[in-house]
Simulated scan of single mutants.
Amino acid sequence: MKRTVRHLADGREIIYFDEEPHPRDARDTRDLPPVAASSEIRLDPLSGEWVAMAAHRQTRTYKPPADLCPLCPSKPGKPSEIPESGYDVVVFENRFPSFSQGVTGEPATVDDLGLVPTAPGRGRCEVVCFTSDHDGSFAGLPASRVRTVVDAWADRTAELSKVEGVEQVFPFENRGEEIGVTLSHPHGQIYGYPFVTPKTRRALDVARAYQERHGRPVLGDVLAAERKSGSRVIVEGEHWTAFVPPAARWPVHVLLVPHRQVPDLPALSSDERDDFADVYLRVLRRCDALYDRPLPYIAAWNQAPVRVDRELGWLHLELFSILRAKDKLKYLAGSESGMAVWINDATPEQIAERLRAAG
């Protein structure tokens, strides 16, 4: 793979990941003003969780027509975020970031009352385009392209981990309008958070308590139990197993877990990256066959934090969908949204059986 770094008209970094060497010398001809991010984070005194405020994102691009897609390669008279006329995988800084290195300010408190801490939302947000084909999908990629995407994720995780103030790196993909996607081109994002996220902190606390009590990683024991039972396993490879979690929250819910404990994507071996590509594509194609339509989903990488508790982390990918039938959505209503208590309309065993049958 060849990695080429260039810059867009407003100074943002763009990185090409090519499977074969290509010259990447096209210039961004747009007249762009500098990125103006004004992110702030506030610590909720009732939950102890950070909340990001990014009001500047209200003006971000929203559902453009296909011929004006900002993620497609540039064409004569139609420049886009990618100056080249084609690409394999490309990553660039988000023009409307939730977190940015350019944010100014100092830690303070709301209204100077000392109750609600605030700080600049310093971090980094990137966009990852998986293919130049506007009408493609991750499930339609060849395994070789998925491997390139994995290498790009690993590269960006390593680089963002070096960025001042970044405490956790989160690659993810949102797919489908039902999920809230505003750009239909196949793409994902990477957030470099200036704090350890609440979900990760809770998972680390659980992992620590389990390790102290049993002397083993909790996800390792869950993985071993799922492989032994097999009732919720969807796909099993040499280095990865995909299964429906035994307490699944979503109508479609799958974990992809490597058989070896590693903290993050850069720690994966070459063989593990290749095997992930095979296992993940088999899962995604079952997902799209489940209701005989493209499945809207979120695919979220759970990685160890950059600086703390890395020995407790066990990298895994969580994929879930709000689609509970071909034309019915699972809404997060009172119990889920109000109390964070999930109620699933199907058992994990039923979900696993449906996905296996869809294969």
Rank of each mutant, 00 (worst) to 15 (best):
R3G: 00
A247E: 06
V5G: 01
P186A: 10
G237M: 01
S337C: 04
A267L: 00
N174A: 06
I298A: 15
C129K: 04
F96I: 04
R175K: 15
A289D: 10
G334E: 09
F92N: 09
R6T: 11
V341E: 11
P348R: 02
M339G: 01
H134G: 08
I343T: 14
F172K: 01
E164N: 08
V283T: 10
V206R: 12
C125F: 03
Q261T: 08
K2C: 12
D288Q: 09
G121P: 03
A139I: 05
L223V: 13
P79N: 06
D327Q: 12
D133Y: 02
V196D: 03
A346L: 13
G48M: 08
V149I: 15
R147G: 03
P21Q: 07
R213C: 00
R249E: 11
W50N: 03
G220K: 02
I234N: 01
S85G: 13
Y210E: 00
V206C: 00
L315H: 02
P348M: 09
R24K: 06
I15Q: 08
R216D: 01
F172D: 01
R232H: 03
G215R: 05
D135A: 15
L141Q: 05
S321H: 10
D271S: 14
V181C: 13
A299H: 12
L43F: 02
D151Y: 00
R273C: 00
A158W: 02
G123H: 03
L312R: 06
S132K: 14
G11S: 04
E178N: 08
D67G: 07
S74H: 07
L268K: 00
I14S: 04
S38Y: 00
S132A: 15
V146S: 03
S144A: 15
D151Q: 14
S47E: 10
E159R: 15
F243Y: 14
F96A: 11
R208W: 03
P76W: 04
D278F: 10
F92M: 10
L312M: 05
R208M: 05
L295W: 00
S144F: 08
Y62A: 10
H185Y: 09
A9L: 03
C129V: 13
E311C: 06
A37Y: 06
G114A: 07
E13L: 01
